[in-house]
Amino acid sequence: MADEMKMRATMQGDVTDVKVLMTHIMETGLRKDPKTEKFIPAHFVNHFVATLNGKTVVDAQWGIAVAKNPFINFRIKGAKPGDKVAISAVDNLGTQYTGETTVAAK
């Protein structure tokens, strides 16, 4: 699962548009297994950090209500084609997820 992150960073004028799609179950901990009647344990990404050439541009904390397979779109200024955008995320069970892409000219 750890490498299942799709990313795209594209120049749009002088702004870089970054789209990230992660694969994660984002289990809330509020759902019951219909067979066992027990709560399905929470399992969700709770930290999400994006960097441009190693410098943090977005530092986010998430709760259980970010939708399954999280999709995030943000925009950064001052990046140019070839720059590196990286994502580092971790879930409540401590699993790390990383992704990296290069800024593409439009």
Binding site: T28, T56, W62, G63, I64, V66, A67, N73, F74
Partner: peptide, 27 residues
């Protein structure tokens, strides 16, 4: 989301070079 059991969904800190824009999907 006011009526979710836990209303806070996500909190994004943006650096000064980041546009004040976020798009995502929530429950």
């Amino acid at each position: 989301v006011d009526k979710n059991q836990y209303p806070l969904v996500a909190d994004f800190d943006l650096a000064s070079g980041t546009e004040p824009y976020i798009s995502t999907r929530i429950k």
